[in-house]
């Protein structure tokens, strides 16, 4: 589903965000991406979502070479990828329902379809009773769950999360991770960037570790990972 082949990303400033990274993930796989801040976790996720383009190497997502995706086609590529951010990136002048509905609205789903899917997604993250609330009235954990509902509402095959538990206490973080596991069980490919090593240890999944832009470990053996 995701395949990196000797991928490097050099920013115009000269800073090398990633160098020669190669790995691949099968459809329905789940992995954590760890490493210190500045190790290149965000850069890697941005390349998958085409927020950035690789300087060298080849990124394949769902059988498609992202280097060949024209700028006009980028929106259609992004619709296949749900993205979750540490700062949630919600619109504060819109209700929870409207926030979650955004991916459906931009792809032109009918009103009935939108209502049905948004409620299904909110149900999954346990926020069905908050659909008319504004994000600002919700707690951090709830806001993050709205962000997750938005990322999965259009049933994308790939979901990326960048420090999804960054601002949450361990209890809430655990809840979020449980959610991810549930998505993974229905076949979603999940790549979660986090520096919360304790959390990763509890999850018992594949772990990719980045250091200074290079992939320094790729293992499912947790003893080896840390």
């Amino acid at each position: 589903m995701i395949k990196f082949d000797n991928v490097s990303k050099r920013y115009t400033s000269g800073y090398e965000g990633l160098s020669n990274v190669s790995f691949s993930m099968e459809a329905g796989e789940m992995a954590f991406l760890t490493g210190h801040s500045g190790a290149g976790k965000s850069t890697l996720l941005k390349l998958i979502g085409l927020l950035e383009h690789a300087t060298r190497g080849q990124v394949m997502v769902d059988g498609r070479n992202l280097g060949k995706v024209k700028s006009r086609q980028i929106p259609y590529h992004r619709r296949k990828i749900g993205m979750i951010f540490q700062d949630h990136r919600l619109l504060h002048d819109r209700t929870v329902f409207d926030n979650v509905a955004m991916p459906l609205i931009v792809s032109g789903a009918s009103r009935a379809e939108t209502g049905r899917r948004v409620r299904a997604a909110l149900d999954k993250v346990n926020l069905l009773n908050k659909e008319k609330a504004y994000p600002i009235t919700l707690s951090g954990g709830e806001q993050q769950r709205v962000g997750i509902a938005r990322a999965v509402v259009s049933k994308p095959p790939v979901v990326l999360a960048d420090e999804p538990t960054g601002n949450l206490d361990p209890e809430l973080s655990k809840e979020i991770m449980e959610l991810f596991l549930q998505f993974n069980q229905v076949g979603v490919t999940l790549l979660i960037a986090t520096h919360d090593i304790d959390l990763v240890k509890q999850m018992n999944q594949r772990v990719l570790t980045l250091g200074s832009g290079q992939l320094i470990r790729d293992t499912t053996n947790l003893q080896e990972a840390f």
Binding site: P75, R78, M83, R150
Partner: peptide, 16 residues
Amino acid sequence: HDEIEITKLVGATNSF
């Protein structure tokens, strides 16, 4: 600005 950015993130086309 934020709204445009987020709408682009969830796959909105330019014409949208």
